[in-house]
Amino acid sequence: MSPIGPLVLAAFLFSAGVYGVIARRNAVLVLISVELMLNAVNINLVTFQNLLFPGDPAVTGQMFALFIIGVAAAEVGVGLAIVFNMFRNRASVDVDDADLMRW
């Protein structure tokens, strides 16, 4: 199988995530979009690992993907906590409400 398919898929998911990050108003949905981007990266890594460098004894690509999953979990936790905290302070999770600080 050609690596180009999964790679383009990853690029697409990544771009969709970027779209979500910028366009979504709800902070939780923004976080979800970020997760989408990280998952796209994982597709890349796995594709490269298994299609291009299958013999790597250190299994670099898949290990990298595992680490990303771990870090992503940590980020989700922290991110949600931040969102909750903000929600408690202002009863809103709208990202564009967060504009007290500018200039």
């Binding site: 970027v18 779209y19 910028i22 366009a23 979504r24 108003r25 709208d94 990202v95 564009d96």
Partner: peptide, 8 residues
């Protein structure tokens, strides 16, 4: 969706 859809 926020106001940044076009940009997005």
């Amino acid at each position: 969706d926020g106001k940044n859809r076009g940009l997005a």
